[in-house]
Design a protein around this nucleic acid. Structure first.
Length: 963
RNA sequence: GCCGGGGUGGCGGAACUGGUAGACGCGCCAGACUCAAAAUCUGGUAUGGGUGACCAUGUGGGGGUUCGAUUCCCUUCCCCGGCACCA
């Protein structure tokens, strides 16, 4: 073998070998335990970044480890290929998004292959492929049939230049992130998915996910935002129900068509817990419904406030120009929640009064900008004494403040000043006062009593409120999955019939930046109405790309089946045993996926008849299918089993690097790539400054942050692979930090990883003969009777293995890598310690050394093989261990090797380490105490008289307590 | 404001269920090899004191429980992430 480690000469060969052997192609086998290891698929942005390398290395280490544990492992890969960057690239380069995307996929796939990931490429998919997105469309139509998908008109952010809806994240300081145009609020129609129909289950099932990080579950729970309270109504004096008309549905939490004023409970028919709708009939007073979590403060209501979009506000504005102007102003304001939080509280009285349902008092209704149309009822009861916002508003407009809650009887020592009226609202729970019959009740008692009273009057009841809104999936964008709807002047919105699917997106469009280019494609738009056959127009909106990523994990399981979305094989592989990806997807993608999966479980589709007559594609690899596979589920069953798609979740940390910059007197900050900066240090290695290599002048350090183009602190993985090879890149990524933590890039750290692999190679080269000799004579040697130095080295090796096995099962790969390094250090130490002379000496001692090398290095190679597969695979074969390390079993420690005759104990005096003693492994307490007390240094602190106690921790330490 | 996660050498990070704090690596210092440099190898490297064996201090600060605390409890400061006029 070559005496020099040259990754460039071995890695491509091994990758080719794995590919030729189809080493990582997964086949369903009910007899074997499966392990589905999934990393979040990348957006094909151009080239891999360090975050990808980290993500996929973590996944690959887990996959390869599980494989060596004997599991049937599936690790697929695909492309989240629809999305805005392709359109933006198309606009600046005048290339069709499809070409840009497919070129990027080709390049990135090459990069992934060069990293040696154990991926089953036969299952590769791209979401922009009609073979994939046809099922988005098909399933969307099923959702439409079941009422889970629906159309409604809602206020959204509208970019007037790009002529598209913007997500809230895409609006920066009230302007479009790309165009800089002032964003407008617009009411436009779109399709929505009823994720709120699943809010209860999405929340409750978080408890079924012990393998998910706590913080992700917390973030999802917060996002779903369940709160318990009371929903009740004020009678609106002198305003008839009919006067308020039929407003647009304000909130995603409500099913389409719900009536705002006196509408049904947001939980609607699902729970059957319908609240009294109040008095029916046009002549009756209309009702103003509000929701509160603090029904115990209901006696302290001094006004009501409604959102500008609330029908009552609109009604009042129609009679009052000043109010109308204010309502308009509010509507123009930002819809970003964070902005609202800091906005000044403004409001105007409507002149309309309502009747308090319990006190019959007259209460004035205000329009206030702090009330959100999208949450609850778009209207609140205001209790200034016990709510911060109401308090500020009341102060500003001189509205009355009525205290109805007093601090609880038990003195709470930490209460601040101003309790019970004064400069702040008292918002804690307490006891009702000034509340008539409710006086003296605590929070819970009061809420219950008030809810009962409201219910008796048929004006309210307890109610659960959710923060989660339905998921709007319409995008006025070209590069996405077309929504399969046809607009007909006679028949309305008509779903595209199954046998006309897929609605294929024209791939040759070059967007010009103004609106959706599909609107200019008559060949796409013009079609015939499936119902009446007259000419009609195709919907040009496309689906949110989060739709694509909501079920790709299921498609991998039956990727070659063009007749069904999923087939029986999905129930073999799913759920995903381990999902790995960035924390940035903690809410959206993971919540949407959980929702989509549950809908797949619940939608009962008869698949006895294929939806269209398409021949099954020839399976490229003639994969065997389990019996019964081929059609999704049996009639009357959901498409999939199981409640949750992802059993365990690992959220990897970001990859960071330092930023360097200069800020000229005038002008913009200039960032310099760390590769072009030289760090200056003093004699102790401490940092004194940094200079730019090119001009030798100082630059400022801006701290260590996520790698990004804008701050020019990225490191290209390609350069790393080319310089050191894939194994070094992988080793460094695993060694530098635990997977969930942030990882700071370090050039010298990568260099150190390379150095270690060179040493590993060198060791194999130097001890080639010893190892092959050891393999031949291993049966003839009992290592438990070898030289003490060898036994000692073996004990260290096996205890390192023990620790590494514990760590790898916890995904603590940094200490696994570290154990590998220690293992090599130990092996390198054997030769000196045992005075190795000739490798073929033939004495028992020499044979023992050879066998110890053979055993130790075999452990080392297998332990490291998930992290650095190339070098380990190569050396395994080269040294004669076997044909294929991929088929080798995972190493387990030898209990006998862990035994020792003598052990070292720590001797403490009053908890401070004073000596180290060596005692026989099975020494009893008297013997240990005697040896400990005989130690010279111990004697300096201990006299026989002052000993008050001796604590003995077996195998660890002796603590002598002296007075 | 609420909810999570963290504060350990010059740096990244170790420390199994309360039991030797700083493993492993980076950096730095010294030495070997070399005409020299790179590469490689050997030794050292928490801080302060001592020639040294050792001693004192030390895991953000303060307090507690314990024979013994990075680990458990209370309190406080700081950093990161998420949510936020949510009624």
């Amino acid at each position: 073998m070559n005496n020099r480690y040259d990754p460039a000469s071995i890695e491509p060969d091994l990758q080719q070998r794995w590919e030729e052997n189809r080493a990582f192609q997964a086949t369903e086998d009910p007899a074997r335990e499966k392990f589905y290891c999934l990393s979040m698929f990348p957006y094909p942005s151009g080239k891999l970044h360090m975050g990808h390398v980290r993500n996929y290395t973590i996944g690959d280490v887990i996959s390869r480890y599980q494989r060596m544990q004997g599991k049937n492992v599936l690790q697929p890969m695909g492309w989240d290929a629809f999305g805005l960057p392709a359109e933006n690239a198309a606009i600046s380069n005048q290339v069709p998004p499809a070409k840009w995307t497919y070129d990027n996929i080709a390049y990135m796939k090459k990069q992934l292959k060069s990293l040696g990931f154990a991926i089953d490429w036969s299952r590769e998919l791209a979401t922009c492929d009609p073979e994939y997105y046809q099922w988005n469309q098909w399933f969307f139509l099923r959702m439409l049939e079941k009422g889970i998908a629906y159309k409604k008109t809602q206020v959204v952010n509208w970019d007037p230049v790009d002529q598209t809806v913007l997500a809230n994240e895409q609006v920066i300081n009230g302007r479009g992130w790309r165009t800089g145009a002032v964003v407008e609020k617009r009411e436009i129609p779109g399709y929505y998915l009823g994720i709120t129909q699943y809010n209860e289950e999405l929340l409750a099932d978080l408890d079924k996910l012990p393998g998910w990080p706590e913080r992700v579950k917390t973030m999802q729970a917060n996002w779903i935002g369940k709160s318990y309270g009371v929903r009740f109504a004020f009678r609106i004096n002198g305003v008839a129900r009919s006067a308020l008309g039929s407003p647009p549905s304000p909130s995603g939490t409500n099913p389409p068509g719900a009536d705002l004023v006196g509408r049904s409970s947001p939980e609607g028919g699902r729970t059957g817990k319908s609240v009294n709708k109040g008095n029916e009939g046009d002549k009756e007073d209309a009702l103003l419904w509000v929701f509160t979590t603090r029904a115990d403060t209901i006696m302290g209501v001094t006004y009501c406030a409604v959102a500008a979009e609330h029908p009552l506000a609109i009604y009042a504005a129609s009679k009052n120009p000043e109010l109308a102007a204010f309502v308009e102003e509010c509507k123009r304001g930002s819809v970003i929640e964070a902005d609202l939080a800091t906005m000044e509280k403004k409001g105007l009285p409507t002149g309309i009064f309502v009747t308090h349902p319990l006190t019959e008092e007259k209460i004035e209704v205000w329009v206030a900008n702090y009330v959100l149309m999208g949450y609850g009822e778009g209207a609140v009861m205001a209790v200034p004494a016990h709510d911060e916002r109401d308090f500020h508003f009341a102060r500003q407009y001189g509205l009355p403040i009525k205290t109805v809650i007093a601090p609880p009887p038990q003195p709470s020592p930490s209460r601040g000043e101003g309790v019970g009226g004064g400069d702040v609202a008292y918002t804690d729970h307490g006891v009702c006062v000034n509340s008539g019959k409710y006086d003296g009740m605590d929070y819970e008692t009061a809420v219950n009593a008030i809810a009962v009273d409201l219910k008796t009057k048929r004006l309210g009841d307890k109610q659960v409120q959710w923060r989660l809104r339905d998921w709007g999936i319409s995008r006025q964008r070209y590069w996405g999955c077309p929504i399969p709807i046809i607009h007909c002047d006679h028949c309305g919105d008509v779903p595209v019939p199954d046998d006309q699917l897929p609605v294929v997106l024209p791939e040759d469009c070059v967007p010009d930046g103004a609106g959706n280019p599909l609107n200019k494609r008559d060949d796409f738009i013009n079609c015939l109405c499936p119902k009446c056959g007259k000419s009609a127009r195709r919907e040009t909106d496309t689906m949110d790309t989060f739709v694509d990523s909501s079920w790709y994990y299921a498609r991998y399981c039956s990727k070659d089946n063009n007749n069904a979305m999923v087939d029986e094989r999905v129930n073999y592989w799913m759920p995903v045993d381990q999902y790995i990806g960035g924390i940035e997807h903690a809410i959206l993608h993971l919540l949407y996926s959980r929702f989509w999966w549950k809908v797949m479980r619940d939608i009962h589709v008869s698949m006895n008849v294929p939806y269209r007559d398409v021949p099954m594609p020839q399976a490229q690899d003639a994969q065997e299918r389990p019996a019964g596979a081929g059609r999704a589920g049996a009639a009357g069953l959901g498409l999939v089993k199981y409640d949750e798609p992802f059993e365990k979740l690992l959220t990897q940390g970001m990859v960071l690097n330092e930023i360097f910059y200069r800020k000229p007197e005038s002008g913009r900050i200039v960032y310099f790539n760390p590769a072009d900066v030289e760090i200056q240090i003093d004699a102790k290695g401490q940092r004194t400054g940094a200079i730019l290599k090119s001009d030798g002048k100082p630059v400022e350090s801006g701290g260590i942050v996520t790698m990004s183009k804008s701050r020019n602190n990225g490191v290209d993985p390609q350069a790393l692979i080319e310089k050191y090879g894939a194994d070094t890149a992988r080793f460094f990524m695993m060694f530098a930090a635990p997977p969930e933590q942030t990882l700071e890039w370090s050039d010298s750290g990568a260099e150190g990883a390379y150095r270690f692999l060179k040493r590993l190679w060198k060791f194999a080269h130097e001890h080639h003969l010893h190892i092959s000799t050891g393999l031949k004579v291993s049966g003839k040697v009992n290592l438990n009777q070898a030289h003490p130095d060898i036994k000692n080295a073996r004990r260290i090796i096996h205890s390192l293995l023990e620790q590494a096995n514990r760590d790898i099962s916890k995904f603590q790969f940094n200490t696994v890598a570290s154990a590998g390094m220690k293992l090599l250090n130990t092996l390198e130490g054997i030769s000196g310690a045992a005075k190795l002379d000739t490798p073929l000496g033939g004495t028992h001692e020499t044979m023992a050394i050879n066998v110890a090398y053979t055993e130790g290095f075999s452990i080392l190679l297998r332990l490291l093989s998930p992290i650095t597969p190339h070098i380990c695979d190569y050396l395994w074969r080269e040294l004669g261990y076997g044909d294929d390390i991929l088929k080798a079993p995972w190493p387990e420690p030898d209990e006998q090797a862990l035994q020792q005759d003598e052990i070292e104990l720590v001797v403490q005096v009053n908890g401070k380490v004073r000596a180290h003693i060596t005692v026989p492994a099975h020494a009893g307490r008297p013997e240990i105490e005697q040896i400990a007390l005989a130690d010279d240094n111990v004697k300096r602190f201990v006299t026989p008289e002052n000993i008050s106690k001796i604590v003995l921790v077996p195998g660890r330490l002796v603590n002598i307590v002296v007075s």
